[in-house]
């Protein structure tokens, strides 16, 4: 029994959450924790089920994921274009990088008022904010990745007559793929952060809107339910990227590779 607990991949790790959850449920039912501050897990679950049954939860989730997705794609594409250029060409680096670094030192949430002023509180400002959040980690990792490509491999490319775009495509991009995928994953993490920010700053639908709704209607179960869903979705999307990462980097000779 003890051996199984020690060696099982998830058993040991799920022990603490289960115990805490049980304690929480018991304390809530016994009235030790007041329900208007922290409702019992079962109450939160039933809130989620209610929202699921009337179909509104699906709409909230879909819209949030949609915003994240569009912002993520736009931010990533911009990062790939600029990152490749800056990573590859020293001239482009000297031209673009100081400005990009300056913008990077602005905490991205500081853009919120400006974006709202420019674009209103509609979808455009939300997607822009998310794209800005995603852009930087992806950009930095691409530039780093390209800089870090082994000179020896670049020489192989040159020996076989490659230069310019062909060299980028056949040597530099594949060689910097690991770093790019790391960038994508941290970009996605930031994307989730910014989707929350974007939806809090004004939305009539979405998981972030549920947070605000819960706050305004004194409904902690709604707030915790949407926090839980954010966590779940964040984990899920990261898991998808992780699988893509593992699949496309199976050739890597790292300590973790099997």
């Amino acid at each position: 029994m003890w051996k199984k607990l020690r060696t099982h991949p998830v058993l040991l790790g799920s022990l603490l959450p289960i115990v805490l959850l049980a304690a929480w449920e018991i304390l809530s039912r016994a009235g030790v924790i007041p329900a208007y501050q922290l409702p019992a897990p079962s109450a939160i679950l039933s809130t989620i089920i209610t929202y699921l049954q009337d179909g509104s939860l699906q709409d909230h989730v879909l819209l949030t994921v949609y915003r994240l997705f569009v912002g993520f794609i736009i931010g990533t594409i911009a990062a790939i274009l600029l990152g490749t250029l800056v990573g590859y060409s020293e001239l482009a680096e000297r031209f673009f990088d100081p400005l990009i670094q300056a913008f990077r030192s602005i905490p991205s949430l500081a853009w919120v008022p400006l974006f709202i002023l420019w674009m209103g509180i509609g979808e455009t400002s939300k997607v822009t904010l998310i794209a800005v959040g995603v852009f930087f980690p992806v950009y930095l990792n691409i530039v780093d990745g390209i800089r870090g490509v082994d000179r020896k491999l670049i020489e192989v490319g040159r020996m076989y007559g490659l230069d310019g775009v062909a060299l980028v495509r056949r040597i530099i991009l594949p060689a910097s793929l690991p770093s790019f995928l790391t960038g994508l994953r941290s970009g996605l993490g930031l994307g989730w952060m910014f989707v929350v920010a974007a939806e809090i700053m004004g939305a009539s639908q979405g998981l972030g809107y549920l947070l605000i709704l819960g706050q305004n209607t004194y409904a902690p179960d709604v707030i915790i339910a949407s926090i839980f869903l954010f966590a779940l979705l964040g984990k899920l999307t990261d898991w998808v990227l992780k699988i893509i990462q593992k699949r496309s980097l199976h050739w890597q000779d790292t300590a973790l590779a099997k």
Binding site: K152, L153, E155, V156, M159, Y160, G161, R170, I171, P174, A175, L177, W251, Q252, D253
Partner: peptide, 22 residues
């Protein structure tokens, strides 16, 4: 053509794909 002091194979390509690289 150049054969380097080290193999310098492209790690993301199989042996065959490396051999057809040029």
């Amino acid at each position: 053509g150049f054969i380097f002091q080290e193999p310098r194979l492209l790690p993301w390509k199989t042996v065959l794909a490396n051999a057809t690289f040029g």
